[in-house]
Amino acid sequence: MAGVVRMVQGSVFRRSITLSYGKNVRIISTSKKNRETVSVAEPTDKSETTESTIVSKKNWVSYGYDFKRQEDDTNAMHSTFFFSITLCIVFGGFVFTYYPDVLLRDWAQREAYLELRRREAQGLPPIDRNLIDPQKIVLPSDEELADTDIII
């Protein structure tokens, strides 16, 4: 939202310059104000100096890890990004990519191809109709099924 407001304000400002001068004018700021910093008066008595009164001399925006000390904030940010990006994403992706096939999917597929090749060489169908001996299959009788719908 702030970007839209800045865009609108900038276009209005440019129109006013164009109208007043009659041509497009580009304004370039050569001010050194971007290097100026806000300083806080520190206590002159050394005994009153505490961690909360020590403020960085530069304009410092916290990364959100520590709001009082810039060094601790920066170290926490760097270690967080190191562990999350380097260890989790990079190393985790490497482990995931090169982890062995624990479910043996590749082995099962190779065995299936070998079995198909063997059955074709012997002139048998790819899957035998009587893969399980029909004598070993126990089916319920019609009385046990009663009104049960059978979908084939």
Results as ranks from 00 to 15, higher is better:
M1L: 05
V8K: 06
V8F: 09
G10N: 12
G10H: 09
S11C: 07
S11W: 11
S11T: 15
V12Y: 09
F13L: 07
R15Y: 04
S16P: 00
T18C: 04
L19E: 15
S20W: 15
Y21R: 10
G22P: 07
G22C: 08
K23N: 13
V25P: 07
V25L: 13
K32M: 15
K33L: 06
R35N: 11
R35K: 09
R35D: 13
V38A: 10
A41P: 01
K46Y: 01
S47E: 13
T50D: 11
E51C: 02
V55N: 03
V55P: 00
W60A: 01
W60M: 03
S62Q: 11
S62L: 10
K68T: 12
K68W: 02
R69S: 06
E71C: 02
E71R: 08
D73T: 06
D73R: 06
D73G: 02
A76H: 05
S79H: 12
T80F: 14
F81H: 04
F82A: 12
F83D: 13
F83C: 07
F83K: 12
S84Y: 12
T86V: 09
I89P: 00
V90T: 09
G93H: 05
V95C: 11
V95Y: 07
V95P: 00
Y98F: 15
Y98S: 09
P100Q: 11
D101W: 04
V102Q: 05
V102A: 04
V102E: 05
V102L: 08
L103T: 05
L103S: 04
D106N: 01
D106L: 05
D106I: 01
A108S: 09
A108R: 13
A108P: 00
Q109I: 01
R110D: 06
A112M: 06
A112K: 10
R117A: 14
R118C: 04
R118H: 10
A121R: 12
G123I: 09
L124S: 05
P125I: 03
I127C: 03
R129S: 13
N130R: 11
N130I: 02
D133W: 06
P134V: 08
Q135G: 03
Q135L: 04
K136E: 06
I137N: 05
V138W: 14
L139K: 12
L139G: 04
L139W: 11
P140N: 10
S141V: 08
S141T: 15
S141N: 12
S141H: 13
E143V: 11
E144L: 04
D147C: 07
D147Y: 05
T148A: 15
D149E: 15
I151N: 04
I151A: 03
I152R: 15
